[in-house]
Amino acid sequence: MILSLRTLMAGAAAAALLTGPASAFDTKARAAYVLDYTTGTVLMAKNADESLPPASMSKLMTLYMAFEAVRDGRLQLDERLPVSQHAMSYGGSTMFLNTQDRVEVEDLLRGIIVLSGNDACAVIAEALSPDGTEAGFANLMTRRAQQLGMTNSAFANASGWPAPGHRMSMRDLSLLASRIIEDFPEFYPMFAEKTFAFDGRAPSNINNRNPLLKLNIGADGLKTGHTTEAGYGLVGSAKQGDRRVIFSMVGLGSERERAEESESIVNWAFRQFAERKLVRKDTEIARADVWLGDETSVGLVAQKDVTLLVPVTPGTRLEAEVVYTGPLRAPIVEGQKLAELVIRPEGLPEHRLPLFAAEAVGSGGFAKRMMVVSRTLLARLQAPSEEAM
């Protein structure tokens, strides 16, 4: 029999579970995903697993693989790479490279991050491709994405240039952003750079297009995107205090709408949610019934403090319950896993926390065990029969 205790026994813990509902945020984006990176809490998911044209936001995959190559020694930051006719032929956002150039890898990375250089992506791709082609590198991108858990992504090129089958989901893009931040802290500061004047040859393309970088709201990355097919999009991240928020969105109608929507998402994520310590280590959360023990119940505790992200608007109680299969049969060892605490913040995913025995409970003596059995049998005999009902 599975039992649930909705009333928490520990007064301090119960008081901490008072909070309010998440304020709804209805984004104009076709698809969006907002993640509190610090706690792993998903704050918003709108069409988050739909595979859509990602435009230049897919350059993050090219960058991730380039960072891996530098870390592994397959590329050197000061290494100079040749520019092919294919790379030079790209239009759109470019570094204005030509086939006479040999460009340092570090400049190419900045050219992709800050200038969104399609030509720079092709140069990196051809250098790392097993067959020297951008298409060969795109196949590697797809396989590596699958290994990283990006199950709704496939690539036809390194830059996000419109092509059949070149798709990513917003959840995948946020996962990729998280991996870049986590795996390559030495490169991540590049994403906050506002300008990059490569060789003085492209004065009209020296500014980072990320609209959040100039707003003083903690934004430090990552990548914009725009094509006619995809609309306007952004993979963004901002850090305020100890919290970091990562988000991805696509399908907005204009550059201005992208700027306004991304600022609204960041402000909403930081203002409407806060971290709260909901459970303290070794504080009794509840008591569970024990069968045939020298005690009739056992305390349930967590083995670590639990801090969760919760809505901050006052007025609604956060739902929490202790779930276990019981009554629990003695003997019970101190520290034995016995139950789960299920916490359900309104509008956010539930959180499950294992609970353990606060103390040992031995088997009851013969007399006590017989008394428990007798009481149980007597209760069953006195219960009304189905025929009498």
Rank of each mutant, 00 (worst) to 15 (best):
188 Y>M: 13
188 Y>D: 08
188 Y>Q: 15
189 P>A: 14
190 M>K: 08
190 M>P: 00
191 F>D: 10
191 F>S: 03
191 F>A: 05
191 F>R: 02
192 A>Q: 06
192 A>H: 09
192 A>D: 00
193 E>C: 07
193 E>T: 07
194 K>H: 00
194 K>A: 02
194 K>C: 03
194 K>R: 10
195 T>Q: 08
196 F>W: 03
196 F>Y: 06
196 F>M: 01
196 F>S: 13
196 F>A: 02
196 F>C: 08
198 F>L: 14
198 F>T: 02
199 D>K: 13
199 D>Y: 13
200 G>C: 05
200 G>D: 05
200 G>T: 09
200 G>Q: 05
200 G>L: 07
201 R>I: 00
201 R>T: 09
201 R>F: 12
202 A>L: 05
203 P>F: 10
203 P>A: 04
204 S>Y: 12
204 S>F: 12
205 N>V: 11
205 N>T: 09
205 N>G: 13
206 I>S: 10
206 I>M: 00
206 I>G: 00
207 N>Q: 00
208 N>C: 00
208 N>F: 02
208 N>P: 06
209 R>D: 14
209 R>S: 13
210 N>D: 15
211 P>R: 08
211 P>Q: 07
212 L>Y: 11
213 L>T: 00
213 L>C: 04
213 L>V: 09
214 K>R: 14
214 K>H: 09
214 K>W: 10
214 K>I: 07
216 N>H: 15
216 N>F: 04
216 N>V: 02
217 I>L: 12
218 G>K: 01
218 G>Y: 02
218 G>N: 03
219 A>F: 02
220 D>T: 08
220 D>L: 01
220 D>H: 07
220 D>F: 02
222 L>N: 04
222 L>F: 09
224 T>A: 14
225 G>D: 07
225 G>W: 04
225 G>Q: 02
225 G>C: 12
226 H>G: 03
226 H>P: 13
226 H>D: 06
227 T>N: 04
227 T>E: 14
228 T>P: 11
229 E>R: 12
229 E>N: 13
229 E>V: 15
229 E>M: 13
230 A>E: 02
230 A>T: 02
230 A>H: 03
230 A>K: 00
231 G>W: 12
231 G>I: 04
233 G>Y: 10
234 L>G: 08
236 G>R: 04
236 G>T: 04
237 S>T: 10
237 S>M: 10
237 S>V: 04
238 A>Q: 08
238 A>D: 05
239 K>A: 14
239 K>W: 10
239 K>T: 15
240 Q>V: 05
240 Q>I: 06
240 Q>E: 15
240 Q>S: 08
242 D>Y: 10
242 D>G: 15
243 R>E: 07
243 R>V: 10
243 R>C: 11
244 R>Q: 14
244 R>H: 06
245 V>E: 11
245 V>G: 09
245 V>L: 11
245 V>H: 01
245 V>N: 03
246 I>E: 08
246 I>A: 05
247 F>H: 10
247 F>A: 05
247 F>L: 13
247 F>V: 04
248 S>R: 01
248 S>M: 01
248 S>Q: 10
249 M>I: 15
249 M>W: 02
249 M>S: 06
250 V>E: 14
250 V>L: 15
250 V>M: 13
250 V>Y: 05
250 V>W: 05
251 G>P: 01
251 G>Y: 01
251 G>F: 01
251 G>R: 01
252 L>H: 00
252 L>T: 01
253 G>F: 05
253 G>C: 15
253 G>K: 15
253 G>L: 12
253 G>S: 14
253 G>Q: 11
254 S>Y: 03
254 S>R: 08
